[in-house]
């Protein structure tokens, strides 16, 4: 993986140089084909990347590169996965193509070839590339705007109303102490009755699926009585955010992080500040490299907490052809 990681790098470099030189063929491969110097350069990079890996960093984390990027909406090339798929295909050539599991596994490869029109055009025109960059930036700006600090509300109404407004605005739900859950109704609106609960603390927040990010947490951290926080399937919650939850350490008892695509074991390690935690849901985190081991280590770190999720057997997933045999085994015994 490292090998490809490095070898990819020199190619876009030549774009800048060839901008004036070859207007008709922008693709780096075309340029490389003509030019023996670049060919040798690429070869050099190939060889150098092969010899490079050992000295500086002895441990390369292989698995964490395969995550999807929700921000850009593109899929990363799952290089390792692809290789193993090829192997499987070689063995199962012919009749077994229609096996359901295999068909599902092959699908991402097909997706890679499919491009949107803009993606296709960006390969030919720089202006389209700039346009896409601009759209990307716009998307990020929007996210920041959604998550900006609501200081003006906080001044007038206090931290609880601010937190509630922020979460409801993003589409989540809140519960004030001894009150009912407040959610959006079917038309995407929420009642403003909660404005009278200025002195009532919030005890539960359900932000599942919300676009909350690091800056947005500013509005949640002053909720000192928060007992339950659910951040399920939040696409922008990452390790940096988890590191920020320590002001809630005194009250927080329940935390759910299930399905967050950006949370890895590195962020989970920083939850050791939350010693009052009673229940922690860390199931289905794609960026965690060893879910089973991570769960054991987290349980060690938070001895009073029930850690749910990550099935330890998840690590022991077998190749598709082995699975039926394994399933068959328990039946006779």
């Amino acid at each position: 993986q490292l090998h490809i990681h490095l070898a990819q790098v020199p190619l876009p470099a030549e774009r800048g140089c060839h901008r004036h030189a070859t207007p008709e063929g922008k693709g780096p491969l075309q340029d490389l084909g003509e030019n023996p110097v670049f060919q040798s350069l690429v070869l050099y990079f190939h060889s150098s990347s092969l010899t490079f890996s050992p000295p500086p960093r002895p441990i390369w984390d292989l698995s964490s590169d395969c995550s999807e990027c929700p921000l850009v909406g593109l899929e990363r090339k799952n290089i390792l996965g692809e290789q193993s798929l090829h192997l499987v295909a070689a063995i199962w050539n012919g009749s077994t193509r229609s096996i359901h599991g295999l068909g599902g596994a092959v699908a991402p490869e097909g997706n890679q070839k499919k491009k949107t029109l803009l993606q296709f055009l960006a390969g030919y025109f720089y202006d389209v590339e700039y346009l896409r960059e601009y759209l990307l930036q716009n998307q990020m700006l929007l996210l920041h705007k959604k998550n900006r600090s609501l200081a003006h509300i906080s001044e007038n109404y206090g931290p609880y109303i601010t937190g509630a407004f922020f979460i409801l605005h993003l589409g989540g739900a809140v519960r004030f102490q001894n009150k009912e859950w407040i959610r959006l109704n079917k038309r995407g609106q929420f009642p403003l009755e909660f404005l009278k609960f200025q002195k009532v603390p919030i005890e539960a927040v359900d932000a599942s699926g919300c676009d909350i990010n690091y800056e947005g947490l500013d509005n949640l951290l002053p909720l000192k009585e928060l007992q339950s926080l659910s951040l399920q399937r939040c696409p922008y919650v990452d390790d940096w955010c988890l590191n920020r939850l320590y002001p809630l350490a005194n009250s927080l008892q329940e935390l759910s992080l299930a399905g967050c695509p950006r949370i890895s074991e590195r962020g989970l390690a920083s939850l050791h500040h939350l010693q009052n935690l009673r229940r922690l849901d860390i199931s289905d985190l794609p960026a965690v490299s060893n879910p089973g081991l991570t769960q054991i280590l987290v349980e060690e770190m938070l001895p009073n907490c029930k850690v749910v999720g990550a099935d330890w057997a998840q690590d022991l997933k077998l190749e598709p052809e082995d699975q039926p045999q394994d399933r068959a085994n328990p039946v006779p015994t």
């Binding site: 590169d65 990027c69 990363r76 960006a122 590191n243 590195r266 390690a269």
Partner: peptide, 11 residues
């Protein structure tokens, strides 16, 4: 069109 970076930050 390039994959996002994974900084592997340990906080």
């Amino acid at each position: 069109d390039d994959p996002p970076l994974d900084l592997k930050f340990n906080p």
